[in-house]
Write a protein that binds this DNA or RNA. Sequence first.
RNA 1: GGCGUUAUGGUGUAACAGGUUAACACGUCGCCCUCUCAAGGCGAAGAGUCCGGGUUCGAGCCCCGGUAACGCUACCA
Length: 495
Amino acid sequence: MTDQSTAAPIRVRIAPSPTGDPHVGTAYIGLLNLIYARQRQGQFILRIEDTDRTRFVATSEQEIFDSLHWLGLKWDEGPDVGGPFGPYRQSERTAIYREHIEILLANGTAYRSFETAEELEAMRKSQLAAKLPPRYNGAHRELSQAQIDAYIAEGRPFVVRLKVPAEGETSFRDELRGEIKFSHNNVDDQVLMKSDGFPTYHLANVVDDHLMRITDVIRAEEWISSTPKHVLLYKAFGWDLPRFWHMPLLRNLDKSKISKRKNPVSLIYYRQAGFLPGSMLNFLGLMGGGMPAGGKVNEEKNSQVEIFDLPKMIEQFDFAKISLGGPVFDLVKLKWLNGEYLRALTPKAFFDQLRNNLFSDDYLRAIAPLVQTRIETLSQFGDLADFFFRDDVTPPQDQFLPKKRTLEETLAFTAELLTVLETSDWTTEALDTTLRAAGAAKEWSVKENFMLLRAILTGRTTSPPLLESLVVFGKSRSLDRVRRFLDTQKKQRKP
RNA sequence: GGCGUUAUGGUGUAACAGGUUAACACGUCGCCCUCUCAAGGCGAAGAGUCCGGGUUCGAGCCCCGGUAACGCUACCA
């Protein structure tokens, strides 16, 4: 029952959410999906999962497109290129989800649940306090039609939940690991449709994958525990299951799931910091095995360098050879690989890279007005604007530490700044508001506040205007600089 | 806590369907080249394959039992 007709054309997809910077993990899973599709003359689809209105970021979708294109990952169907199974943006498919939720409500595999978010939160807390696994208590599983009608007439908001069978288990086949079983005791009655009428991931994902004729779901390992819910949904609709492939999770150096706190994860960062798309793709392809002999080309002398481009990966990548331990995303090795790519460039191509990226007209045009009034000879440009072109800066303590502050409170305040900056819009106006508010909240003067950030960003106490500099330097790289600063300070204090 | 997944040097990976001193790359260290730094060349250290049992003439590969790490445990994906 797991296999779709073998004659059906292979169709795979990635389904990123536009909730922030395009993630390196999206590129990783995207690459794997693309390789899988190309190896089998299949189709690769991009679907935007924008059902979470609270985390939605307007610019994010375009950034996902741009970053993926930068890497050379091309999709056959998607919101921007269209296709026969659209729309490819979930926010444009709400009518479809409503229709489908009606089917489940009608055949008794889902039910309305009228508790408020606060009630649920309270329930969760008390369960946790009692050391019980936090799960929905099923209070509204068997509401009578009369009660339901009454609640609805009252105008009480509700969510729709999956009615997981009380007994038994659900098992499915993971193509890389074999059979995986979950007892229904451990599968919660997942919310399928939120009270705002938007579907959750679980519903939208299953419905779309079926409607878009997806044959193989290739996604990250973190989804394994919710797969039984998805399987139950396919069954509830009476649909065939796709194949499931759960890929190992990219990790930080400490083996935890890769995160911006410990590692740059934004593709925008990597692009702006001057990594070449080819080396990034090559590196990603090496993560988790799959390539012959772990990336060793052959026994010939001098040809052991792990150089793979997309066509080569499509030719040689073997999904059966994927190793399941979570690979550490090792920035040191990525840099080495990128260096290899840089050195392999012709002098002309290398010059073009510099000219089109680090020293692009756009970048220089944005920086120029910030320094024009501050220099007397053109060569002083370098003295003042060097931080725009550097990988990192390290301000000495006497530069960043305000006179009246201890190192302790300064670092705490910096961490505070980091959190508010992460969610701030990246315009001078927004940054001004954000920073002033954060400073006021902790009783840091604007001067102390701005000076601190200036030192972190530029490595000195004299610089072009802070806000404008932040904007020009970009959000990803600016935040990375703050994180690295914090990290360096932490490491210096510990040992 | 519950459930699930995983486990080869510091890191990424190899090791045919169990068969010699566990291989390659990054990193580290040393030497050579050299005005410096890289790059490049040469070399070294570093794992006995998470631990404990078992099967076998023989186990990193098979079986059993532990442990640890990670993931999930939301009206987020």
